[in-house]
């Protein structure tokens, strides 16, 4: 008997097949979701589709890890960067999804990407070279930073790459963030704050609270000089992890939680799962909610959802056919 999860996956896949039939690869999937799409995907609009092994690379592990593009980033102009590290490059797309340049990478071990200042590309390799590269739009390396140092004892424990108006921050163990580059992308004296910096100069802290059935969010001054605003975001199902936590320049917060129901008996297989996409205002009052059926696959991926400059949530997910980038309706204030 098919599980709810299987039925939902089939329904979501049907919607994807519609996209695939209408969208030419590797060009943008600009066709909106058709009326026949399931309600769960009705809020998602396709932006881009990249076919496996033609447009974008992957590694299917055999006694090793498997991965596709490890991360992506939404640019200030509404375009997208896709980290195609298996092919030693970063793909650049304009706001309509048309491919632009690609930027060469020195190895396949980079696992995060971001844009800084509207014209620079950041590429992070936590595990092997342990460096952060800053590339200009010609693909030239402007800055190469050794990650290890004050605040970052083990670069493998970096959990987020966060460009902000005052420079570039790296979050460690989802606990503290370290500013490693200043606004001019120069290495700077490292400063540390609890949580992750927000664009409006505050700090945002997230912590799972399984007992309460959700995640606690706290936003307040970076120096802790005044009490912040706190909220508990709960799920309908047990919350397994915080997938994404970010804030807009106006102080709104996007929180994406992985909800999952597991069997209570061995081997404890997952029965149903989804991403809960929650939009909150600067006072952490919920203003919008969506659910994504596309959760992490066995292909490892670090950057799954991003908060775009327009306040929308962007998601990159994998299917058997390839890599999809979609935007979710509703904007974070």
């Amino acid at each position: 008997m098919p599980t709810r999860s299987l039925l939902k996956t089939l329904a979501a896949s049907a919607a994807l097949l519609v996209w695939l039939a209408t969208a030419a690869t590797p060009t943008p999937a600009a066709t909106p979701v058709t009326a026949g799409a399931t309600s769960v995907t009705a809020e998602a609009r396709p932006f881009l589709f990249l076919a496996w092994d033609q447009d974008v690379g992957r590694v299917l592990g055999d006694e090793s890890d498997s991965w596709g593009p490890m991360s992506f980033a939404v640019k200030a102009d509404g375009g997208v960067l896709v980290l195609d590290q298996a092919n030693l490059r970063i793909l650049d797309f304009d706001p309509t999804g048309v491919p632009l340049a690609s930027y060469a990478l020195p190895s396949t071990t980079f696992d995060d990407v971001a844009e800084a200042g509207g014209h620079l590309v950041l590429a992070l390799d936590r595990l092997v070279s342990r460096t952060l590269l800053v590339l200009d739009r010609d693909g030239e390396i402007v800055t190469e930073l050794d990650l290890a140092g004050r605040g970052i004892e083990n670069p493998g424990l970096i959990t987020a790459l966060i460009p902000r108006p005052d420079g570039v921050w790296l979050e460690v163990s989802h606990r503290h963030s370290v500013r490693v580059l200043d606004a001019a992308m120069r290495p700077c004296e490292r400063t540390v704050l609890l949580g992750r910096p927000t664009p409006d100069g505050r700090a945002l802290i997230g912590k799972l609270d399984r007992g309460a059935g959700g995640a606690r969010l706290l936003v307040g001054p970076r120096d802790g000089s005044a009490p912040g605003v706190e909220a508990l975001v709960t799920g309908d199902w047990p919350v397994r992890r915080i997938v994404t936590l970010d804030a807009t320049a106006r102080g709104g917060v996007l929180a994406v939680l992985h909800e999952a129901v597991f069997s209570a008996v061995s081997p404890f297989r997952v029965q149903d799962e989804r991403y809960r996409i929650v939009r909150l205002d600067a006072d952490l009052q919920e203003t919008g909610l969506s659910f994504s059926p596309w959760t992490l696959t066995e292909l490892d991926q670090r950057g799954e959802l991003r908060l775009g400059p327009d306040g929308r949530a962007w998601q990159m997910f994998f299917t058997w056919e390839g890599v999809h980038v979609v935007t979710w309706e509703g904007r974070t204030p």
């Binding site: 595990l127 493998g156 970096i158 163990s173 992890r241 799962e273 490892d300």
Partner: peptide, 10 residues
């Protein structure tokens, strides 16, 4: 390698 990561439900 030594790193922080998550796991899919598979």
């Amino acid at each position: 390698v030594n790193q922080s990561r998550t796991f899919s439900s598979s």
